[in-house]
Each structure stands twice: as C-alpha cells, then as structure tokens.
Amino acid sequence: MENLNQPQATPPDNHLVWAILSTVLCCLPLGIVSIIKSTKVKELWLQGDHAGAQKAANDAKKFAIWAAVAAAIVWVLYIILMVVGIAGGAMGGY
C-alpha cells in the first residue's frame, strides 16, 4: 500500500465521507453519482492524470452538494405540504 500522506503523492480529497453520510441519512440517487466519481479519483491519479483526478474530485463534491440540496428541497416541500395540510384540515373542520 503506498503512503497517501506524502504531499507529492496525495490524491485530491474524493469526499467519500459525504457520500457515506448521504447514504446513511437517506440513500439518494445523486449520492450514488458522487460515489462513482469518488472511485475515479484514485484511478486517474495513479494513471498520472492529475487534472482528471482533480476534476473527478470536484465532481464528487459537486454531486454530494447537489444531493444535500435535493434533500433540503424535498424537506422544505414536505414542511410546506404539512403546513398546508394542517391549515386545510383546520379549515375543513368548520
């Protein structure tokens, strides 16, 4: 196993921890795209394609953020529907 801690040998952060977090907190499709991008980081790095590895790392981060944004949108819609539902239910009661 090569040492990943030496500055010259360090591949870009593949942000896998965020992909795991999004999986454990609700398996999101965008999280899966993030995982696939994460696996590409080291492959490209070992092939010497440092620019490609950096791009894969940036993409992994981007999709992890989008997964979080998508989750946030779903939750906000859900809260709105709950509030409307409660309001509608109260109105219907009379």
């Binding site: 591949p11 896998l16 921890v17 995982i35 696996t39 080291k42």
Partner: peptide, 12 residues
Amino acid sequence: HRISLFYNNAFI
C-alpha cells in the same frame, strides 16, 4: 491527510 480505506474501490 487521506484515509486509504476511502480510496479502496473494494471497500467503496
């Protein structure tokens, strides 16, 4: 610093 486990495709 990197966690080598997170760069292991078999683990992922």
